[in-house]
Structures are given as C-alpha cells and as structure tokens.
C-alpha cells in the first residue's frame, strides 16, 4: 500500500485557481481583442504579440535571474498584464515602445514590489502612464491603420476627447467642435480612433458579463465608477452643455469602459470588500471627471486608477467584513 497522505482539514478544494481565474480573464478580453484586430489589422496583432510575449518573458527572466526566486513566475497573470497593456496602446505604437512599456509594467510596477500580489499600482496602467508622459506624440496621435474589415476611413488625429479639449481651449463650445469635426455621439459600437481596448464597448461588456457569470469579479467597482461618471457629467452638462461634455459621451470614450471593467477590477490593486470597492469606484469616477473638466489632460482614467490604487490599503483598513456575533 502506498503511503497515505496526512494533512490538516479541509480535505477538499474548490475548482478555481489563480491560473483558471487568469484564463477566464483572457477569455473575457478576447471579444475586444478580436474586434480590435478586425479594425486595426496586422499592426494590432504585432502590438498584442510583442506586449504579451515580452511581459511573460520579462517576468520569467526577472524571477529566475534577478530575484533568483523562480517560484515567483506566475505566467498567466503576466499574460493578462501584457494583453491589457497592448489594449491600452494605439495600434500604431512602435514595437520598441511596447517593450519599454512591458519593462515598466513587469519590471518596475510588479516585480520590484515583490511580484504577483505585492504590487500597489496596476502594472498595465503604470506602463501606459509612463509611456504617455515619455512618448506623448506616439501615444496620442491615433492614426487608424487599415484593418481587416472596412467601414471606417483612416482617420488620423486625436481622440474625440482630445479634439474637444483642444477646441475648448481655443474658446469654442462643444457643439461647435463636434460640428466642425463631423462627429456625432454614436460611439456605442466603435470609436473613431483610440487604443485597441477603447474600440468596442459591446465587446468589452460581453467579456465583463462572462466574468460576472463565472463569479470572477463583482460588479460593484465598475458600477460605482460608471454611475459616478454619469452623475457628475449629468450635473455639469445640465448646468452648462456648451462647455461640459454629456454623460453618454464621457462613458463611451477615453478608455472608461476598459478601465472600469478590466483595470480597476484587478484583484491585487483594488479593495477587497464590497463597500471598499464602492468607495474606490466613486473616487475613480470623481477624479476622472475632475481631470476631464478642469485638468489639462483630455481623458484621465489611467491617472484616476493610479491615484485610487494608492488608497487601497487605507480603504482595506477602513472597510471590514460584517462579523458574526459582533454587531
């Protein structure tokens, strides 16, 4: 007879593991990835591939040779970081900038804090912000290259948010800007220009619903972000529609959906409790809208998430589970 195992209880384990959760996230991202590949073509595939491969490879190299703790290589989570980073970049990003992004995401934002689970800031967002500041031209000049399906003419120039910000700065009102650029606010299905992840709200939503059904994430963080943005935008837009963009417009542009559904819900860098999540989400929503209405950057989702990342330990300390028998 074989030697029997002896271990403390419990003797059973749920099916979910870190790897299976990461697999679910990849599945959830795939509709948006497919849509962006269809729209942006080979260059999008290149960005995705470079980002994913370099993130996974970097994590392995750093864990193995720099930290000398090969068990810190997580694989699946680095892949998710890589995909999210790629979806945050324009399809036209040169490959070497993508690699710089991967180095920042994995090397600085993740591994220097001790690897998976130890990082304070969302790695993909940190990398995006780093690139945004370091390479403003490549990161904001959205030239839509030829995709696999037609439908959009190659539009070059800034994102809708960028266009409006410029217009407002030069003293125009929003209707004037929109009319001058031939835009309307029907951007549910596809954006005009933007990073891969911003292109299709429906694809992102579909993926997120999958995560909800699989019970990988809870809806409270995205819900509170979106509601906050909508409410703040509705108030300002109601007071002065000429200078403040509408709720609809704000929800559908500038990576709000990608950020709210997939970046702000990152386990490691978001609060654990439901109410903590709500505070986190409301904070992000408020900061986004403040940046958009009063700041000098046209969007602000990335900054908002990074700023609220800092507060996660505090939020975790403030919000606890309701304990049994201690009411």
């Amino acid at each position: 007879m074989d030697k029997m195992i002896v271990s403390p209880s419990p003797h059973l384990h749920a099916k979910a593991s870190t790897a299976s959760i990461m697999r679910d996230v990849v599945i959830a991202l795939s509709p948006a990835i497919i849509v962006s590949i269809l729209f942006y073509g080979w260059s999008e595939i290149l960005v995705l591939a470079v980002s994913a491969v370099s993130c996974v490879a970097l994590e392995w190299l750093i864990a193995r040779y720099l930290m000398k703790r090969p068990e810190l290589f997580s694989g699946s989570s680095a892949l998710v970081t890589g995909l999210l980073l790629a979806m945050n970049l324009p399809a036209t990003t040169p490959w070497w900038i993508v690699i710089v992004g991967a180095i920042v995401a994995i090397g600085i934002a993740k591994m220097s804090f001790g690897g998976l689970g130890q990082n304070i800031f969302n790695p993909a967002i940190t990398a995006r912000v780093f690139l945004l500041i370091s390479f403003p031209v490549q990161m904001t000049n959205w030239t839509a290259p030829k995709g696999f399906i037609g439908g959009i003419d190659a539009v070059s120039g800034a994102t809708p948010l960028g266009i409006i910000k410029e217009g407002l700065k030069s003293g125009q009102t929003i209707p004037q800007v929109l009319a001058g650029n031939g835009m309307d606010v029907h951007m549910i299905l596809r954006d005009i220009g933007g990073s891969a992840g911003e292109i299709s709200a429906l694809a992102l939503l579909a993926g997120f619903i999958y995560l909800l059904v699989r019970k990988v994430v809870k809806p409270w963080i995205p819900l509170s972000i979106l509601v906050t943005i909508a409410v703040v935008a509705a108030i300002f837009n109601g007071i002065d529609p000429e200078h403040f963009t509408s709720p609809n417009f704000n929800l559908m542009t500038g990576g709000v959906l990608l950020g709210a559904l997939f970046m702000a819900t990152d386990y490691v860098t978001s609060p654990m409790s439901n109410w903590g999540g709500v505070v986190f989400g409301v904070g992000i929503g408020l900061i986004v809208m403040m940046i958009r209405y009063f700041g000098s950057y046209p969007e602000g989702m990335s900054f908002a998430i990074l700023i609220m990342n800092c507060f996660v330990p505090l939020i975790n300390r403030a919000f606890h589970q309701k304990k049994y028998g201690r009411a």
Partner: peptide, 22 residues
C-alpha cells in the same frame, strides 16, 4: 522510515498540532 506523507503548511508547529508525525 516515513510511514505516511505530510501535506500542509510547512511548519513543525502546525504538524505537531495535527498528529503524531510522519
């Protein structure tokens, strides 16, 4: 010689609290 295989937190304290040993 070992007569069973311990699986669990690698801590003598945990192991000692659980059983007589492997």
């Amino acid at each position: 010689p070992k007569i069973n295989e311990y699986q669990g937190e690698r801590s003598c304290k945990v192991k000692a609290g659980l059983y007589g040993g492997d």
